[in-house]
Amino acid sequence: MQRRSRGINTGLLLLFSQIFQVGINNIPPVTLATLAVNIWFFLNPLKPLYNSCLSVEKCYQQKDWQRLLLSPLHHADDWHLYFNMVSMLWKGINLERRLGSRWFAYILTTFSLLTGVVYLLLQVACAEFMDEPDFRRNCAVGFSGHSGYQNHHPYSSAEYSEEPRNYDVYTAGLSEEEQLERALRASLRDRGESLTPFSHFMAHLMQ
């Protein structure tokens, strides 16, 4: 399982533009650190995605519990990173200011791990109640928990390949330019702003 090659990482550049529009000095420390860590691991992953994604087969059956820590910090591609981190940026700014940095860091860490645990429990439940053992092999990465990969291999074989699911779940079938325009408008709409000249410049640059 490898990230798709997109040439220029449009989503990553757009994420940087959002961060600089907000201003690094305006981002509370835990939120800023979370953004930095996720970007760092996207650019310098500790392990390939197939060695860091979360599944019952990998974690429980093969006792690879470190995936609970690795999976939230790895993303399938730049757009997956962008949407997760932009959401984190705005929610983090509001919540960290309201709760305080120490309490926010505790909640963020706790629920990052709990999300993985709940995902594993749901996998087991689906596999058992729907009589679909393949659910145990569905593998997920991402800070929000919802990007999945499914292993395709015979039960009798020790080797397998992992293929990404359809990315239209993220792109809605839109082109690169349409995705960029939608992302710009969505992120700026949360702030009650129209497209700025800088945003138009970024959109033109990415085309």
Rank of each mutant, 00 (worst) to 15 (best):
L81A: 03
Q62E: 13
I24N: 08
T196C: 01
I24L: 15
L32S: 08
D77I: 10
P28W: 07
V56P: 04
T171P: 02
L99I: 01
S101R: 12
G148S: 12
K58Q: 07
H75M: 00
G7T: 02
L13D: 01
P28M: 10
R3M: 02
L99S: 02
H204E: 15
L121G: 12
G173D: 03
V118Y: 13
Y60K: 04
M88C: 06
P164D: 09
L35R: 00
S5A: 10
G173W: 01
Y149M: 07
G23F: 08
P48L: 06
M85G: 03
D64E: 14
N94E: 13
N44P: 00
F16C: 07
T110F: 14
Y60T: 07
M85D: 03
S156A: 08
F135I: 01
H153C: 06
L32I: 03
R98G: 07
L205P: 00
S156P: 01
D77H: 15
S161L: 14
G7N: 06
E193K: 12
Q2K: 05
C126G: 15
L120K: 05
Q179D: 08
L188D: 08
R136Y: 08
C139E: 11
L180F: 05
P29M: 03
L205E: 05
F104L: 09
A140Y: 14
A127S: 15
L122D: 07
P45I: 06
L188H: 12
T10E: 06
A36I: 04
Y170F: 09
V37A: 10
W90S: 02
I107F: 06
Y160D: 11
P154R: 14
T34C: 04
Q179S: 13
R97P: 01
H152E: 12
R137V: 01
F201L: 03
N151K: 14
L205W: 10
G148E: 09
H80K: 14
Y155S: 13
N25V: 00
R191I: 08
D134M: 06
I19D: 03
A125Y: 10
L108C: 09
D190I: 04
C126F: 15
A127G: 13
R67Q: 14
R6A: 04
K58Y: 01
V118W: 12
L120G: 02
L113H: 12
R185A: 02
L205F: 14
V169S: 10
N94A: 15
R182D: 02
C139Q: 10
I8E: 01
Y167I: 06
R182K: 10
E163Q: 15
Y106H: 11
L89D: 00
